[in-house]
Amino acid sequence: MKNRKTLIIEGSSDRLEQILALFETGELDGTPELKILDVGIIATNCAAIKPVDLYRVWLDSLWSKGFQPAVRSSQATSTNKKIVRFQNISIEIVMTIVPLADLSEIQIFLQIRPVDGKGYLPAGLKVAILDELNEVILQKSTRDRSNLLDLTEDGDLICQLEDSFKLSLMLGDESVVESFPR
């Protein structure tokens, strides 16, 4: 005659996972006198979830892409710049990121200007923002003696955690594409 009983094991989550793994892999089945027939989970807790700091994610990404701080930023915003080189001329991308609300959204201000803001942008420079499907969502071009292209002056560019976009810069036959945030 066989006698069965259910026991409860409590402990740290790591130890409980270890016990479960030993049983599942066949390494814990008892002794000749005492068989372990089944080991199962009967209680769980939601692990504390750390909210993603989207501002930090973007900052780290910009710096890893070669952006550098453009001005002394406050803790609330960050303005960064990166030089883009074409064959005969260089220009600068200036990106300001501002965290919104509960860190789950950021607002982006995007400008193209001559290096250090001195001089003019080349005429015929075409700049576009593309979405994840490479569809153009905004496009602007320079004319003679333009010293700034402000891509976000007409509307808000707001990103959430899974959002991404590309910045395309075309001058004659040359093109440069930067993906954000990665």
């Binding site: 066989k2 259910t6 026991l7 409590e10 409980l16 068989k35 027939l37 989970i41 009967i42 209680a43």
Partner: peptide, 12 residues
């Protein structure tokens, strides 16, 4: 989620 309790069914 993290596990907080296991049940073990034993037989003798």
């Amino acid at each position: 989620t993290v596990i907080t309790k296991l049940s073990v069914l034993i037989e003798i």
